[in-house]
Simulated assay, not measured.
Amino acid sequence: MTKPLHVNEPVPRYGQLPPDADADLKGSLTAIRRAALRARLVAQQTGTDLIVVREGQVVRVSPLQKTTS
């Protein structure tokens, strides 16, 4: 398996958990981030774009595109 290029996707405000969040909630956020990384890897391998929401807009993004927050 190849590793995707380092991409710094902007972290939305809702991506932060409150300090008192339970372990299941913390684990689910980690799983979602892991799934997003895997989706980017598969998109790179298959030469397809990712569809993401940024600032309320649905946009098509190349998996090779580096982004900054």
Rank of each mutant, 00 (worst) to 15 (best):
M1R: 07
K3Q: 10
K3L: 15
P4F: 00
P4T: 05
P4Y: 06
P4I: 04
L5F: 10
V7K: 04
V7P: 00
V7E: 07
N8G: 09
E9D: 08
P10Q: 13
P10Y: 02
V11F: 08
Y14A: 14
G15N: 07
Q16D: 13
L17S: 04
L17E: 07
P18H: 09
P18Y: 11
P18D: 02
P18L: 07
D20F: 08
A21H: 07
A21V: 03
D22Y: 03
D22C: 10
D22Q: 12
A23Q: 11
A23I: 10
D24N: 11
K26M: 10
G27T: 00
G27P: 00
S28T: 06
L29K: 10
T30Q: 10
T30E: 11
A31Q: 11
I32N: 05
I32S: 13
I32D: 11
R33F: 14
R33M: 12
A35W: 13
L37V: 08
L37M: 09
R38L: 12
R38P: 01
R38D: 09
A39D: 08
A39S: 09
A39K: 04
A39V: 07
L41T: 12
V42Y: 15
V42H: 07
A43R: 00
Q44A: 11
Q44G: 11
Q45C: 08
T46I: 05
G47Y: 09
G47D: 06
G47H: 01
G47P: 02
G47W: 11
D49L: 02
D49S: 13
L50T: 01
L50W: 05
L50C: 04
I51K: 08
I51H: 05
V52C: 15
V52M: 15
V52T: 13
V53M: 15
R54K: 14
R54I: 12
E55I: 01
E55A: 09
E55F: 06
E55Q: 15
G56C: 02
G56N: 03
G56R: 00
Q57V: 07
Q57W: 01
V58D: 00
V58F: 01
V59Y: 10
V59A: 10
V59M: 08
R60D: 03
R60T: 09
R60A: 06
R60C: 04
R60V: 03
S62I: 02
S62T: 03
S62Y: 06
S62V: 01
L64N: 08
L64P: 02
L64F: 12
Q65A: 05
Q65G: 03
K66T: 14
T67E: 14
T68L: 12
T68N: 09
T68Q: 10
